[in-house]
Write a protein that binds this DNA or RNA. Structure first.
Lengths: 139, 139
DNA sequence: TGAACATATGAGCAGTTGCTCATACGTTAC
DNA sequence: GTAACGTATGAGCAACTGCTCATATGTTCA
């Protein structure tokens, strides 16, 4: 679909500003990287894995036991988390222990929770159903 | 699928720890909320929208023009962002201006970029393809 | 009131995701 | 070597996502 510089013909539409803004936008690769990272964090199972690992390193099968997930499911998810260097493996014999690879993640979790909590207290719960199906996404 | 307390039968597997950890885990609703929020942030289009709005409020059609997206696409995404209170609408006649609803988001972006950058510098680029298809996801 | 316009939303489709199942890989013990 | 075991991974399927198209809603102005 073709989208011209000016989409609507209101006077208020600020064409100069539109063009200036385009130059000020974050680079596409950076945007993609941000989105990829958030995408990986945007799954309850992976959040739970990171949460569990925040208490210390765990082998795959203990992780599966803690979260009541299959070994395969955990392993698949760890692969993704490894890919973004959110977790780090350490082999000891046939057991592989995983730990958080980075302090930032927990800081990001904290900050995000702050956002959510500020929401609920400061603004009341009008239609706070979290858009994307905050409920009913588990299978 | 049934998943017992202990998945594997190695001696190293720490059953007591598994049980203790279960009690220490973050509450399911909190996990879901975190995941929902990250899920919304985990899309390039929405990241771009938030990035654009970080420079100041914009009406829907200017936003569409800046990002070269259809009005419909932008509106659908704004709906999601509104749902999680990441953006806030302000009506002025028939024009609706959107702005960031929260300072936290930009802080989260910054922190996440720090994580990514630390990756690339400190750890070299061995297999840094970001798992989930960092490239080739645009259509 | 009705035309024009900015925005919102429902339906539908192609692409993606997270799981399970089956199986391969890597290490240890015999 | 081979058996056992912890982990990793490919295929495949059901559910979900983000877009477009068509259309509804809400506001302004004549």
């Amino acid at each position: 679909m073709f989208i011209p510089d000016d989409v609507c013909d209101l006077v208020q539409i600020d064409l100069a500003r539109v063009r200036a803004l385009r130059a000020a936008l974050t680079a596409p690769e950076t945007v993609q990287t941000l989105a990829d990272t958030f995408s990986v964090l945007g799954d309850p199972t992976r959040v739970r894995i990171l949460d569990a690992l925040s208490h210390g390193e765990l082998c795959v099968c203990d992780l599966a036991a803690v979260l009541r997930l299959s070994q395969s499911a955990v392993s698949h998810q760890l692969r993704l988390l490894r890919g973004l260097r959110l977790v780090r493996p350490r082999r000891d014999g046939r057991v592989v222990f995983y730990s958080l690879d980075d302090q930032h993640i927990m800081a990001i979790f904290r900050q995000t929770l702050q956002h959510v909590e500020e929401d609920q207290s400061a603004k009341g719960a009008t239609g706070a159903r979290g858009a994307k199906g905050a409920e009913g996404r588990r299978r």
